[in-house]
Every structure is written in C-alpha cells, then in structure tokens.
Design a protein around this nucleic acid. Sequence first.
DNA 1: CCTGTCTGCCC
DNA 2: ATTCTGC
DNA 3: GCAGAATGGGCAGACAGG
Length: 598
Amino acid sequence: MLFLDLSKMLEEIEKEPSRLKMMTLASQILDKTNKKEVDVLIYLLLGQFGATYKEIDFGIAEKTIISALSKATGIDKEKINKELRKLGDLGLVGEQIISSKVQKSLFSKKLIVAEVYSSFEKLAKMGGKGSIADKTNILVQMINNANPIEAKYIIRIAQKNMRLGLANSTIIDSLSLKFLKDYKESNLEEFEKLKEDYGEDVERYLRYKFKEKIESKYNIYPDLGGIAKKLFEKGSNGLRDIGITPFVPVMPALAERLPSIGKIIEKLGKSIVEPKFDGFRLQCHYDGKEVKLFTRNLEDMSEIFPDAVETIKKSVKKYPIIFECEAIGYNEKEDKYYPFQVTMKRKRKYDIPGVSKQIPLRLVVFDIMYLKGSLIDKPLLERKQILENAMTPNKNLIFPENIYTDDVPRIQKFFERVLSEGNEGIMLKDPNAIYTAGARKFAWVKYKKSYSSRAKDTLDLLVMGYFSGKGQRSKFGIGALLVGSYNEKENRYESIAKLGSGLTEENLESLQKALSEIKETEKPKEYVSGINPHVWVRPKYVVEVLYDEITKSPTHLCAKDEMGGLALRFPRLIKIRSDKNKVQTSTTKEVLELFKSQ
DNA sequence: CCTGTCTGCCC
DNA sequence: ATTCTGC
DNA sequence: GCAGAATGGGCAGACAGG
C-alpha cells in the first residue's frame, strides 16, 4: 500500500466525529490490505510499534523531531516551536511547512507503508554515540520524500500519537465489521436463532457479539496486529486457538472510582475491602522454572526485580501460574512501606543488587488469572481461594489483609487506619465478579482520600504563567498553568505544580481572556520557579487545586529554603477562584505544615 | 569526565 | 495517575 | 458509560556537548 493512499484515508478518519463511521472507514482501509501487511497497518493506526506487550521505542520524541523538521526544511527551530505553540500539533506544523515549500523534488521517491514502518524499526534499533544524529537523518529523509499529508502522519508516527480519534476499541470494531460475514457463516445456527429474536437488527447484534469475542481474545493476547493477521489468514476461526498462556501477559483489570464509601457499597453490595498499596503493579508468570514480571502497561520487568523473581520461586508451590501483586519497597527495620518515590528507585538498569538490598521489595499478592488453566472467568472469592493454596506467604510475599462487609462505618474505620499506615486508600471488590481483563468495570472500585468531598485537601494557588496546549487545547492557547504558593517571609511566589488536569473548555476560555490582559514579557521579580512557562503573567488570579500528596521536588521551588522544593502529586483544578485575589493565596508556610502532617 | 536535556515509563 | 468531551 | 485525548510529578538512563 502506498503511504500516500493510507494518509488520505487517515485524514478521512480524522475528520469524522462519529465512531460508527470511523469504524466503517477503518474497515475500508482493511479492505485494501492483505495478510502480509495487515499487522503493520494496524500498528500504524494505533501509533504503536509491535504488540502492546513488546512495543519498540524510538528514543526520540518532540525535540528530535523538531530538529529533523528544521533540518529537512531549512526553517530554524525557534520558528518551528512558535508554530507548534500556535497549532498544537507537530504533524500539522510539518504539513504546513512542507506545503508552503516550493515543489517537491522530482527525484523524491514514493513512500510505501511497509518501508515507512521498517525505517522506523531501523531507527529504533540505533544506539550509542552519534545515534541521535543518525535517527534524525532517517526522519529527515522520510520528510524530504513526503507530501504535506504524508509528512503530517510520519511526524505523528514518530511521536506515537496519531490523533485520529480512533484507537484499540474502534479498530476491534472495524475488524468485527470486516469479518462479520465470515463469522456469520461459521456460526450459522446461532445466526438463524438470533434472527428470530432480533429481526432487522440481527446483523448489528451479531457484529457486537463478534466484537466482544475479538475483544476477549485481545485481553488475553494483547497484540491487535497479530490478531488481525490471524483473522486475515484463517477468518474468524483464526481466533479459536488463542487462549491465556503463561509468559504472554493478560491485560490488567482496572478499577472504577466513586466519591464515597456509601456509594460504592450501594453499587457493589457486600464487598471485599483491601488496602490500596502505593507501589508497582506486577503481573507474575511462573512455570516452575522461569519467572516473568510485567508492569501495568505490560512492560517486561523480569531483569529489574531479581529479588522478586527469587521470592516467587521460593514461595509459589503450584504452576504454571499467572498472578498479580503490588510490589512495594519495604523497610524491614521499621516494618513500614517506603513512599512511592523511594520504591520508584527500584525501576533501574544498573546497580540492581545494591539498591535491592537497600530497598527490598515486598509482594502483596491480590489476584490470580491462571493456574494450569484460565481462571479469569471464576468469581473473585474462588480465585482468592485458589491463590492462597498456590503459594506460601513469608516476609517478602504476603496476602493483603481484608474485610468482607457492607458496613460503611466499619469500612470507614478500616480506610482511616490503612491511611495512617501510609497506604493510598482502599480497593473494594465484588466477590462474585470475574477478572475483568482490560476493562475498567465496577468489579473493583478504588477509594482515596482525595475523592471524598469532605476529607480532601485543596490549596488556593496563584497563576504564575501558562503553557500553550496541544490538540484540542491549542485553540485556547493554554494547555496548563504554572501555579505557586505565597512566601510571606520573602514576599514572593514559589512554583509548586503545573496544572493541566480538570480544566474545562469553559475554564480555558475564561482563562484565555483573563490572562491575556496580564501577560509579562519577563519573569516577574517576585516569582521563584524552576521551570519557565511559555507566558508569564502578573500575580492576580487564584485557582483552587486538589491534589493527593505533597512531595519533595527536584523541579518546583515551593519552600525551597526549608525543604529544597515541594510539589503536588496529581494536581487538578477544582475552581477558578474569581472571588479571591492574590492576597488570599495559600502560603508556603501552610504548604509546609500540610507536608509535615502527611 | 561532568552536566544538562531529552526520553520513556512508573504512578 | 485525573479529568473532560462527544457520542 | 465508553472511548479517546488532554493533562500532572518524578525517577533512571541515554546522549550531546563542553
């Protein structure tokens, strides 16, 4: 397939707001391809390189692409940056620059989809001294051979962000549409029966069923390219032999959230309540010999946690097995878990033995998906039982404490105790629910302090400046704010977070109006900040900000004299406080006190 | 050899 | 991670 | 409610460049 043809079809998808129509358009792309290149095509649609669980990374992103674009077009980087701030998408910037350039060279060759893909594969493999320059050159070459539309998508592929408005689920939809006929023929009996019940809607219903089928396969074999290939090779029968397999990770089940324990119990009824630990989620595979560990995003971490591997070999008695745990740094002397920032240090390539000793991991094992066969369709209670019979707990591997109840005050007490022990919150789980691989369902609901309207902490922070936005936000010229606290002693404002979550279009619009009036060309003298926003503004507006935690920061300078810098974990906007003025900004002293009281 | 910038991936 | 938006 | 796309802090590692 010519890359130009693909690009034109991608543009159609991009313009289309209705997901149903996107599905149809995507299935039309599938009609134009074959079993040899369909996997590559699917990966490109997803802006992903290879199966979800063994994706390749490029080692280049925005800055390097800007260099490449500059080198390819002769336009200096500052100009490109300016355009980026205006358009909010490097792909669009590339498209615009290429189209305004004089005629494309007559000798430029036509880009082929498979070749574009393999160029990126080649680029990904490069490393070592001079490799950034080499990678840049590959990009330059592709851009030089590209039409404006092609350039747009090459740049977006390089960024692994296609901005098509279509992703996994819609692609699965399009596969189900394409192979519907095939599925119908191999399920003829079922089809006839359904016809009686559904009449005209039978096609749509059948497609839905087929979609569910593909989705359920994807959730235990997270490789859409591979699945598409099987469909192209063997039709709907191609999925038959896909089953849950040790060493192929399962898409992790995700938790929903609700704002109060009462609401959760209303929804779930009597629940299993466990602490929510603040570490890495690890999916563990073991066949009696080898152990593999996958993160929440299915990254292979087996080499990184040798102590966890040993723990599993020592403790797990039954296999082949796939189970799930939270891995947290554990302070043996004080019998306490380390905060997340400390556990994070374990995610490393060098000095693994040294840091393992310093920050040993404890595995808190909470679920099981496989033991000599799939368990994901078994109810949680049953899974828990199987799990507890499969391994022997010890100081490095435990089962979480839990209560089984619908007594809200009792859960509240549990929650408070668990928080005081340094945990993030609690998980409430429906005892009868299956393991909802790949889905955020009300089988599990998480509850943290910051979700509660009563107990949450907020700060009133000063807007010090703002950053231009990407995509949808570029039309407002604002993607995030730089916010800070007021230091009374020094009479200055100290940055504490960037704030980009929680901004509605309405917020953005009013901020745009308000902030454009108070722009400053230089950083105001009374500001202290480790990072520079695209635009500084005079001290005037205050916003109410919710967060989960105050952390010691290497980038923000709140309380820099006392603590070397503090920042907010998971900051989000609650409200623009048009009723407050800069005098009412939360002070650094208050922040310090909140930090110490955590 | 040191430092700053960029990137990817944890949450 | 959290949150908003269009369907 | 789903699916997709905005956005956060902060850690380690790879490179570039002085």
